[in-house]
Simulated assay, not measured.
Amino acid sequence: MTGAAPRRRRPDLRRLVRLLGQRSARRFTLLLALLAGFALLLLLAPRPDPAQLPRLADSLGGYAPPAAIVAGALLLVALVPRTFVTLAAGAVFGPLEGAAYALGAALLAAAIGFAVGRLLGRDFVAERVRGRLARLDGWFTRQSVPGVITVRLLPIASFGLVSYGYGTTGARLLPFLAGSVIASAPTAFGYAAIGAAVSSPGDVNWYAAAPASLGLIASVVIITRWWRAQRSAPR
């Protein structure tokens, strides 16, 4: 009697594994459909009038900064280019405040995209990656902040799409968020200063864009040190 019990459980175990695989495939399909919907919406949606943004911010009063951060994050999650979001923030709030709000939106969007990718895509990827893809997934799992900065600075995909992709890997959340903000800092200050210059050319102090150069230098130093450590590490 004791030897017959495991035989009865084996079909149930296989059925459970098959059911979990089907659920992960459905969630991954939902993730792909979500991304396709965002891409289609990005192509078909009417473009907002930038001249209306300052009036909208004035009407919100003290709620304008948090509204800008949340709205910017939602736009980034919907695959809107971060350049547009940062330029708009600079045009409305000025170079320094606009850059700060753009970075806040980037941080929130990175967290949302990572969470959605982890919820809908991680199980599917973990169950099916083999060979080189499995080694690549392991590389993402071991990644620290400099590795995230390196990937963020590569022109491979939009900010939101990279966030979704990271969620499907074994990457850790905190290094991903820190690397995302650091990599976004140089262009955030630079594009915010440009946006402010376009909206009010005579009122912009271009020294406000100085943090962009500092962030760029810091990013280069971090990436160089990480690259040297990778080359010196045993294979």
Rank of each mutant, 00 (worst) to 15 (best):
Y191S: 06
L216R: 03
L30G: 08
A99W: 02
V198G: 09
A193N: 01
R132A: 15
L75D: 02
L136Q: 13
A106G: 11
R142K: 11
R128M: 02
A197N: 13
V77I: 08
P95L: 04
G61P: 13
A64G: 03
S200F: 01
L174T: 09
G104F: 00
D203F: 04
R122G: 07
W226I: 06
G160L: 10
T150M: 15
L174E: 02
D203G: 14
G190L: 15
F159R: 09
L216V: 03
N205F: 14
L133W: 13
R152Q: 10
D203Y: 07
G179A: 11
S232K: 15
Q230R: 15
G170M: 11
A4L: 12
G170V: 07
G167H: 13
A197T: 08
L34C: 06
A197H: 02
S199E: 04
L133N: 12
A45L: 10
A126Y: 06
P201F: 03
I112V: 15
V116G: 04
A105H: 01
S24M: 06
P46D: 12
P146W: 12
P155G: 03
R27M: 07
L74S: 01
L19R: 13
S213L: 14
V92F: 05
F159P: 05
R27F: 09
A229R: 12
L153K: 13
T2I: 05
V129C: 09
G195Y: 00
T83N: 03
Y166L: 07
V220K: 07
S144Y: 04
T141V: 03
S213F: 11
A171G: 08
I217G: 12
L53K: 05
S200M: 00
R10K: 10
L214R: 00
W226R: 11
P66N: 02
A4V: 11
R47F: 01
A78D: 06
A209S: 11
R152K: 11
S199K: 04
P6S: 08
F124M: 07
R130E: 14
F28Q: 00
D49K: 00
A218M: 05
P95D: 03
A126R: 04
T83E: 07
L31V: 06
F159T: 05
L43S: 09
S184N: 12
